[in-house]
Simulated scan of single mutants.
Amino acid sequence: MSKKKLKIAQDYTTTPGPRYIKEGSWSGEKLRNEIVFPQVSESIKKNEKIEIDLDGTAGYGTSFLEEVFGGLIRENKLDYDELVEFIEIKSDEEPYLIEDIFEYLKDAYENPDE
């Protein structure tokens, strides 16, 4: 299976911001809508993995990451099982974020109305 790569620091920003677009620049909502959702959807259709590299930024707020990843299920209605199969997270600088992200996916799947 081939693999596509998305590096947040190069493809979006080195200074991730708030959760929602209305709250300020470089939001998680904008990243999800404009970059992550289209690229993840395309990867699933093409049956290729996508590596999302979190390294190289000033850091991430939990609400930012929850919006990006939990929002794929809650807002964009992607399938949990496909996301877990096709998404790979790279975070050498803050490895705990990998587990956090998969928890956000699981929570959005198990509690879709929250």
Rank of each mutant, 00 (worst) to 15 (best):
S2M: 12
K5I: 14
K5H: 14
K7W: 10
I8C: 05
A9K: 13
A9H: 13
D11F: 14
Y12W: 15
Y12C: 07
T14F: 13
T15Q: 15
G17L: 11
I21D: 10
K22C: 11
K22N: 08
E23K: 08
E23T: 05
G24R: 02
W26K: 09
W26C: 12
S27K: 00
K30L: 15
E34T: 09
E34K: 10
V36F: 12
Q39E: 12
S43D: 06
E48T: 11
I52G: 02
L54W: 06
L54A: 06
D55F: 14
D55Y: 14
A58F: 15
G59I: 07
Y60P: 01
T62F: 15
S63P: 05
F64G: 00
L65R: 01
E67I: 01
E67R: 01
E67S: 03
G70A: 08
L72M: 08
I73Y: 08
E75Q: 09
N76D: 13
N76A: 14
K77A: 14
L78H: 05
Y80D: 02
L83D: 00
V84Y: 11
F86G: 02
I87K: 00
I87E: 01
D92H: 04
L97H: 11
I98W: 09
I98R: 03
E99W: 05
E99I: 04
D100K: 01
D100Y: 11
I101W: 07
L105K: 01
K106E: 14
D107V: 07
A108S: 13
E110F: 13
E114M: 10
E114H: 11
E114K: 10
